[in-house]
Design a binder for these strands. Sequence first.
DNA 1: CCGGTTTCTGTAACCGGTTACATTTGGTCA
DNA 2: TGACCAAATGTAACCGGTTACAGAAACCGG
Lengths: 356, 356
Amino acid sequence: MPSTTGAKTTVTIREVASAANVSIATVSRVLRGHETVTDSTREKVQRAVEELRFTPSRLGRSLAERRHAANGIVFPDLSGPYYAEVVLGYEAVASDLERSVVILSTHGRAAPREHVLDLAGRVDGMVLMGRTVPDAVVLEVAARGVPVVVLARQPISVSDLPVDHLPIDSVNADNTTAAAELARHLTAGGARRPVFVGTPASSPDVDERWSSLHATFAEAGVELATTIPADLSEDEGRRVGTELLSAHLSSWRDGPAAPAPDAIICANDELALGLLDVLRTGGVRVPHDVAITGWDDVMAARWAGLSTVSQPMRDLGATAARRLDARIRGDNTPAQHIRLDTELVVRSTSTAPKRS
Amino acid sequence: MPSTTGAKTTVTIREVASAANVSIATVSRVLRGHETVTDSTREKVQRAVEELRFTPSRLGRSLAERRHAANGIVFPDLSGPYYAEVVLGYEAVASDLERSVVILSTHGRAAPREHVLDLAGRVDGMVLMGRTVPDAVVLEVAARGVPVVVLARQPISVSDLPVDHLPIDSVNADNTTAAAELARHLTAGGARRPVFVGTPASSPDVDERWSSLHATFAEAGVELATTIPADLSEDEGRRVGTELLSAHLSSWRDGPAAPAPDAIICANDELALGLLDVLRTGGVRVPHDVAITGWDDVMAARWAGLSTVSQPMRDLGATAARRLDARIRGDNTPAQHIRLDTELVVRSTSTAPKRS
DNA sequence: CCGGTTTCTGTAACCGGTTACATTTGGTCA
DNA sequence: TGACCAAATGTAACCGGTTACAGAAACCGG
């Protein structure tokens, strides 16, 4: 019976081998369930493994097998439900496929090249989200032979790829369709002077939303003229709300003295919620005076009655994980660009047609 | 000038060595900035490294150095802000310390022993959250010589530790103080028939909250008699809400026909929010008829006006990461058990003293 | 110009596994 | 019983780095 005190020494396959009086090759075979091993030998080895509480070193194994059995993912943040859900969906699938997940958060900024490359050295493939990694680095990783899937950003354009390059898949939520739907919903509600809050350049998703809104409003003869830059946080929403309030309050309160926005489309929910709070507190009637919308459909949006767009967040992660797995297994077909459906969720911050 | 086409072959240190016409030892020295190397040699090597776009293999390096430069963390879930923030705080610190983070989510259930041990083989130390890992497995990991810090669960009791064992630190939010404060707040508001919603056995945190509430109510001569088991989700809140509604609606509506609860303390915010929604929709006046409280202070709680308790989530992760780093560096002092402060946040679901 | 240092570089033995190939063992059949 | 073949096991060469130690080169003063 083995002693219970924590042995400090790490046992290796050689010690097991000599304890069982066989060669290391045989131990390895037993461990992998490999080839044919005599029952009696197998038992000897298994007994030794148990007594020594042996667990093979992952490093040794990975080095020999030339695979990590791990996937990487780079994302900007984990606050807010969006990225958390994506990562969770990714982890769930990866875990089912017997792969560990190594994460790298860039905490808002772009990931340092060395960190991304270090990650690349620890995994069999990785997912890169949004603007966390510049195209040049994406290509560099792929050039090292590490499969890459990009998520929530535009695909790597084929012309950028060297000929003998690994295909780089992309997975995205369909911002375009939902944004168009949103624009039509708002014009139908009477919006003529919409405003966008958010920084299109900051994220590919935001960029797509803006473009599609702009185009769809234009079709209805409405111009999405103003874009107010803002980060994707509640505080930023408050800031913008305060500015709008001081600029347009009299107009909203006392009728159209000056042309005030009649719809404020925010790049995400946090932004919209902060803004909504400030405007309502300031006496603005939403949606009567102005409609407000967000994006993502976070839990708080339900409580605030915020109109928004819901995305299949977990599915985004899961789909990326599956695509990546295919590439790791050697799938060499042309790059796929997958779009997942989103859904417009109309609640009380945008319903009523206004100022008929 | 190097060709731009993605070379399929992995370059190794030996190839760099022969390209630079030196030995692999010298290449290694240059790479690590180690010992003394002549300037001219260093340059030769660096040129070769650049031309071959060489990056040392992390596996090879880790195997030789006998360190992974990675930390693990096991958590139940990532939906809801709680764990996400904890993980984020953990990642931020680990990243500053030049360590990657390998995650393992148990998706609500307990982690399979093999998964935890596999993780243990990939990292220099790991954090285990809540009930994700049974004590026996925690000890097994520690016995392998992998430093462990437990988070959001009671410490491993010293008597369970073999003598020559690594110390196991713990980091927790102070559930006890906040729960006591909450109980006093509610009794001051007039609560005499409080009910707890949640399953104490499901998580150490919930257990602590329940115990402290129970004890503090008792001091005021109030008995926390009823505990309604429920998972920590909004849906569960709805379910429980519906049950309570059908059991007590007439009492709440038409006066104290039968003894209905006058305070419902939920184990977390999601639960409380679901419950709150159902009760309010059902015509129950909160807090007039009944007070409702949650725990965690998620964003939606602000919008719902939910009274709750806020925790230093990011700090929990960060603190655990620092403690773990100390252990990895060889700190061998007795186990520390760190408690971080929490704060009672009183909003509109519990303010008014009721039924004077 | 030589022996003794000092400084740089190379050789080779690790780290802990996997696996191709060689070798041994044991069984079958003539 | 011996020849032959298949099955079981062992040997050793990897995987890609680090580093102790030894050897070579350069420098120094006498």
